[in-house]
Design a protein around this nucleic acid. Structure first.
Length: 466
RNA sequence: GCUCCCUUCGUCUAGCGGUUAGGACACCGCCCUCUCAAGGCGGGAACACGGGUUCGAGUCCCGUAGGGAGCGCCA
């Protein structure tokens, strides 16, 4: 039997972290098993589904590299099929029309809640033989017995049918509901493994009953633990970014996010770093945890830095270009973006951070970081800066090694520690207290701009002294 | 309220009856050092609780507590 899985998001917002993790596990399992990964858009809720959200899902999946082998299918395009199945169920006496008013249902619910019971439909219309009408259709759930299935994550799971009720499978406007359409789709698409969040665990027995009413084979289920916010509550906006694409915009690398997500609810001994191929070869549903996990932004940041440090400079250079552009900077040809990447990649947690830390290579200094200027661009720095300027101007070749020697020479001549020379130079050329090693920084900046900025700083000090 | 699910350092987790309970992130200290990083070394930090079962329990069973989810003409 070849494995067929599906990722079935509903397009009612962004693709969030939890959805992405579900998609990843599903995709990994399928790749590992040599199966088929299907993308299905569950857009039966026409009120809340939007085209923009559909696009966001496609963009996010593409960015993460989780390509589908089949689909996308759209549930809204399959209404005829759902209705045919519902009619079949109706004809077989496995479903029935119900004309109970919403008022009655609301009242019933309230009464049950007040009595300390679980709100459930009471089956009033089950044997009422309601005439064809613009009303709702309910599934005749078995009244007794148990639903048993072996969840690949949770193991043997048992529900009493007595806990379930006759759920609506067709709304009064003629559209099918979720529990019906998933089952029909998974049946038609010959899905062998339903891998989804364990918020669906409670829906599973209802769905199993529908499969059985349809004489369809019941797929295997794997219910993944949820991802919660740092405070243990359901992931939401207030936990920072939840949208996958927001992480892209904030300068995260897709491989970092993937590596972070794969370790949420899954592990392989002590290994923390996984290439995509390692994930595919090592991933197994039997190693998935049952307990929910909390999202930890620090670890994601660490992984992102890890991947930036090891990233290919040419690839990162193109990314850096786009992040610089977002900051309103058009990096020309120099300094070379990949050289800048090489200088910055071990000191950047995100690409946005790298872009911000690299602005000064491409933009004139209009003002200095106040604290840095106060500390380093003071009268005592004037002489070192002048000497450095002279030494650098006299250099034969603008090489890192030469620059390094020149700066060291000034420190020696003045009997100063290197920091007393390098740090004023750093503030002078970068505008702030942080940059790559001073020789690398100056080399990247080029002789002309370096000398100009040293002059600028020297006059800044002179003016301040007045 | 009812039903279901879950429970090892702050966080992600290893552990699948006998371990000084391991790793990673974060944190702290030291080293390196022109800044910031990176890197190296070291440190503190956990089996929710109570009963069983067993020679022996983080590991198995039952309760309790805590957390999560579901209970819609949402998905």
């Amino acid at each position: 039997m070849t494995v067929r899985t599906r990722f079935a998001p509903s397009p009612t917002g962004y693709l969030h972290i939890g959805g992405a993790r579900t998609a990843l596990f599903c995709w990994l399992y399928t790749r590992r098993m040599g199966g088929t990964f299907i993308l299905r858009i569950e857009d039966t809720d026409r009120e809340r589904s939007t085209d923009a959200s559909v696009q966001v899902i496609h963009d996010a999946m593409a960015w993460l590299g989780l390509g589908a082998d089949e689909g996308p299918y759209y549930q809204t395009e399959r209404f005829d099929r759902y209705n045919a199945v519902i009619d079949e169920l109706l004809a077989n006496g496995k479903a029935y029309r119900c004309n109970c008013s919403r008022e009655r249902l609301d009242e019933l619910r309230q009464q049950q809640q007040a009595a300390g019971l679980k709100p459930r439909y009471d089956g009033k219309c089950r044997n009422a033989r309601v005439e064809d009408c613009n009303c709702v259709i309910r599934f005749s759930n078995p009244l007794d017995g148990q639903v048993v299935f072996d969840d690949l994550v949770h193991g043997r799971t048992v529900f009493d049918n007595a806990e379930l009720d006759d759920l609506i499978i067709r709304r009064s406007d003629g559209s099918p509901t979720y529990n019906l359409s998933v089952v029909v789709d998974d049946m038609d698409m010959k899905v062998t493994h339903v891998i989804r969040g364990d918020d669906h665990l409670n829906n599973t027995p209802r769905q199993v009953n529908i499969y059985q009413a349809l004489n369809a084979p019941v797929p295997a289920f794997a219910h993944l633990p949820m991802i919660l916010g740092a405070d243990g509550a359901r992931l939401s906006k207030r936990h920072g970014s939840v949208s996958v694409l927001e992480y892209r915009d904030e300068g995260f690398l897709p491989e970092a996010l993937l590596n972070y997500l794969v370790r949420l609810g899954w592990s392989c001994g002590d290994q923390e770093i996984f290439s995509l191929n390692e994930m595919i070869n090592l991933f197994d549903l039997s190693d998935v945890n049952k307990a929910a996990s909390k999202f930890n932004p620090e670890k994601l940041l660490w992984l992102n830095q890890h991947y930036i440090m090891g990233g290919d400079p040419a690839r990162l250079a193109e990314l850096l270009r786009s992040y610089l552009q977002k900051l309103g900077i058009d990096p020309g040809d120099e300094p070379s973006l990949s050289d800048v990447v090489r200088a910055q990649q071990e000191r950047s947690k995100t690409m946005v951070e790298m872009a911000m830390a690299s602005e000064f290579f491409y933009r004139d200094i209009h003002e200095y970081n106040e604290k840095a200027a106060k500390k380093h661009l003071k009268a005592a720095a004037a002489e070192p800066l002048r000497r450095v300027r002279t030494e650098l101007a006299d250099l034969d070749a603008w090489q890192t090694a030469n620059i390094h020697e020149a700066v060291n020479r000034v420190a020696e001549q003045l009997g100063l520690k290197l920091g007393k020379v390098a740090q004023p130079v750093r503030v002078a050329v970068s505008g702030g207290p942080i940059s790559p090693p001073i020789d690398t920084t100056l080399h990247l900046l080029g002789r002309q701009r370096t000398l100009a900025r040293l002059d600028q700083a020297i006059s800044f000090i002179a003016e301040r002294a007045d």
